[in-house]
Simulated assay, not measured.
Amino acid sequence: MAALLSCYSFSASAQTDVPQAQAGAVESLFNVQAGIVGIYVNYEMPLSTRWALRAEAGLDLWYYDAYKYNGTSVIKDKGTFFAPDISIEPRWYYNIEKRARKGKHTENNSANFITLAVKYYPDLFKIGGPDYIYVPNQISFTPKWGIRRAIAKSNFNYELGIGVGYLRYISDSQFLARRDDVVVDAHIRIGYTFK
């Protein structure tokens, strides 16, 4: 009986010594990323070995091409400005375990993923652009496929993703011709992971 209890206590203590991050499992990550059209801060929380929940806040670069009346005539005005966005997405890193079995690098969630990106653009503020330009309140739901890799096994990373989804304008502006639209969501980013 004493031998059985000592085996049980050895087994229980051995299980608590298992490291938190195992090869081929999704990790908890805090990232800062920059893309062609913005800068973002995000956090990925593991839900299982292949699932993570990602929350993100960022500034997207918007382009405008508008006509304005300058007092005597109508002139064409165009340029860019930054506007905030908030998103949340469950990510399924579907090949992270397969990459680990093949001996490939999986740290920093280096794997391919499928996600449903839910993105909200609040009409809070903008950086740059004229006063008459604004981003109407809108929300989008976009299924996406993507790839994430660490660069040279470092904390630097890159991400690519693409998807087509549904966009809903939630502002009650009289200037919006329609409430629904199709959105193409593509991103190319490079970033750094803080651990």
Results as ranks from 00 to 15, higher is better:
1 M>P: 04
2 A>L: 11
3 A>W: 02
4 L>K: 14
5 L>Q: 14
5 L>Y: 13
6 S>F: 07
7 C>T: 11
8 Y>K: 13
10 F>K: 15
10 F>I: 09
11 S>I: 08
12 A>W: 09
14 A>P: 01
14 A>S: 14
17 D>T: 15
20 Q>N: 10
22 Q>M: 10
25 A>N: 07
27 E>P: 01
28 S>L: 03
30 F>R: 05
31 N>F: 00
32 V>G: 06
33 Q>S: 15
36 I>W: 06
37 V>Q: 08
38 G>E: 04
38 G>F: 00
39 I>M: 09
42 N>F: 01
44 E>C: 04
45 M>W: 10
49 T>Y: 07
49 T>R: 15
50 R>E: 15
50 R>D: 15
51 W>M: 15
51 W>A: 11
52 A>W: 10
52 A>Q: 12
54 R>S: 12
55 A>V: 11
55 A>P: 00
56 E>T: 12
57 A>C: 02
57 A>I: 15
58 G>D: 04
59 L>W: 12
60 D>N: 15
61 L>Q: 12
64 Y>T: 08
64 Y>M: 07
67 Y>E: 13
70 N>L: 11
78 K>V: 03
80 T>S: 10
80 T>Y: 14
83 A>Q: 01
84 P>S: 13
85 D>Y: 15
86 I>C: 01
86 I>Q: 10
89 E>D: 13
89 E>A: 15
93 Y>S: 08
96 I>V: 11
97 E>P: 03
97 E>D: 11
99 R>I: 09
101 R>A: 14
101 R>C: 02
102 K>M: 10
102 K>P: 00
104 K>Q: 14
104 K>A: 03
104 K>V: 06
109 N>G: 05
109 N>K: 02
110 S>E: 08
111 A>V: 09
111 A>P: 08
111 A>T: 12
113 F>M: 03
113 F>D: 04
113 F>C: 03
114 I>M: 13
115 T>V: 07
115 T>I: 02
115 T>P: 03
116 L>W: 04
116 L>M: 14
119 K>T: 14
119 K>S: 06
119 K>N: 05
122 P>F: 05
124 L>E: 02
126 K>Q: 07
128 G>E: 05
128 G>S: 03
131 D>A: 02
132 Y>F: 09
132 Y>I: 06
132 Y>G: 00
132 Y>H: 04
133 I>H: 05
135 V>K: 08
136 P>Q: 00
136 P>L: 00
138 Q>S: 08
139 I>F: 00
141 F>G: 02
143 P>E: 01
147 I>A: 11
148 R>L: 01
150 A>I: 08
151 I>Q: 00
151 I>F: 02
152 A>N: 14
153 K>L: 01
154 S>R: 08
157 N>S: 08
158 Y>M: 14
160 L>K: 07
160 L>C: 05
162 I>V: 14
162 I>Q: 05
162 I>R: 04
165 G>R: 12
167 L>E: 04
168 R>K: 15
170 I>M: 07
172 D>P: 06
172 D>Y: 06
174 Q>V: 10
174 Q>R: 12
177 A>Q: 13
177 A>W: 07
186 A>Y: 14
188 I>A: 15
192 Y>M: 09
193 T>W: 09
193 T>Y: 09
194 F>R: 10
195 K>T: 09
